[in-house]
Simulated scan of single mutants.
Amino acid sequence: MTEEPKKHRFLTIEQAAEELNVSHSQIRALLKTGELRAIQVGGRGMWRIGVKDLEDYIAEAYRRTAERIDAGEIVDDGEPDA
């Protein structure tokens, strides 16, 4: 019987940035605006982002994007088609 790797409940800013493939500063901006929920822990106030909070943020981003597509608001950002 193989053991599954332990899944963490919280992510660091760096881990969340890697998950979304964005910069650390972009994650900090999302935290500052409240778009992405997080908590501060410890004496130095290190940020921790709940895995579920990140998943909720992603789901909401998909929903907003779908609304913008439906409204004809999406503008090509120059990225190549997949």
Rank of each mutant, 00 (worst) to 15 (best):
E4M: 13
E4G: 06
K7I: 14
L11G: 02
T12Q: 01
E14Q: 09
Q15R: 05
A16N: 05
A17V: 12
E18D: 13
V22M: 10
S25F: 15
Q26D: 10
I27C: 08
I27Y: 04
R28Y: 04
L31C: 09
K32V: 10
T33E: 06
T33A: 05
T33P: 03
E35N: 13
R37I: 13
A38C: 03
I39W: 01
Q40D: 05
Q40P: 00
Q40H: 08
V41E: 11
R44V: 02
G45D: 02
R48E: 02
R48A: 00
I49N: 00
G50M: 01
G50P: 03
V51Q: 10
L54S: 02
L54H: 04
L54Y: 00
I58E: 06
I58T: 07
A59R: 14
A59H: 10
E60G: 10
E60T: 04
E60F: 06
R63A: 15
R64P: 08
R64E: 12
R64D: 10
A66G: 09
A66D: 07
E67Q: 13
E67A: 13
I69D: 07
D70M: 12
A71F: 06
I74G: 04
V75D: 03
G78Y: 07
G78K: 02
G78I: 01
E79D: 14
E79L: 04
D81E: 11
D81A: 15
